[in-house]
């Protein structure tokens, strides 16, 4: 029963996203345009650390545009309806799963176009994809909770980025380091500690979102 509800909610989010072609197209055009601009300004990037930094900065801003608006659709009537029909655990889980899947998908698209236009430098591709997966999980969970917090305050979208930046900075620093190691093709054992820390942050931020959301939801 609960599993079905969760599935239905995630499906609903996807259907809504694809129905509003403007927002989906907006995200894709945003990503491709940014990459195109960086390709025009840098031509081909050869230095690994610049390639890495630029990629993750593009990722950061697309994550904020994607996940930051996850509670913007909840008008008073809609959220009352959700409040009466769903358990908070199910609701926040559906948002987390949807944001994570969508962000991971967009980041794969970003990687594809970025490699095409700006150049492909990754040596350890599997490690880079793993970092992308963990980064998507971390960013989406932090941004989802912050978006829920900001939806309770009036000035919505700017507040999301202000609230989430301090928590995203350490995640971004970790991701930059592991990403650099993946580009240099270092042995997996080198990245082990950092991967553990990154997964630790992810677990904690997911758990905190699930624990704290019911209190936000009630008001």
């Amino acid at each position: 029963m609960l599993k079905r509800q969760l599935y239905e909610l995630v499906k609903k989010e996807f259907i809504l996203e694809f129905r509003q072609k403007a927002s989906l197209g907006g995200v894709l055009i945003y990503v491709v345009a940014t990459i195109f601009i960086s390709a025009l300004s840098f031509n081909k990037i050869i230095a690994p650390n610049i390639w890495n930094a630029l990629f993750w900065i593009i990722f950061l801003f697309s994550a904020i545009t994607i996940c930051g608006k996850s509670f913007a659709r909840e008008t008073a009537g809609v959220s009352l309806n959700n409040y009466l029909n769903y358990k908070p655990l199910i609701f926040i889980s559906s948002k987390l799963i949807y944001n994570f899947l969508f962000l991971f998908l967009v980041s794969l698209i970003t990687l594809f176009f970025y490699s095409w236009f700006v150049g492909y430098l990754i040596d350890n591709f599997a490690l880079f994809i793993l970092v992308l997966l963990l980064a998507s999980l971390g960013f989406s969970s932090v941004l989802t909770l912050m978006s829920a917090i900001a939806s309770k305050a009036e000035n919505n979208f700017t507040l999301v980025s202000i609230l989430s930046f301090p928590v995203l900075i350490p995640v971004l620093v970790l991701v930059l380091r592991i990403g650099k190691q993946a580009i240099d093709g270092l042995n997996w054992s080198v990245s082990y500690d950092f991967l553990m820390i990154l997964s630790g942050i992810n677990v904690i931020s997911v758990v905190l979102s699930i624990l704290l959301f019911p209190y936000l939801w009630r008001s």
């Binding site: 309770k152 904690i204 905190l208």
Partner: peptide, 16 residues
């Protein structure tokens, strides 16, 4: 309510 939620989140992250 909202700031209490944020405070708990911020404290856990600070300790981390």
């Amino acid at each position: 309510r909202v700031s209490s939620v944020f405070n708990i989140f911020a404290f856990v992250m600070l300790i981390l």
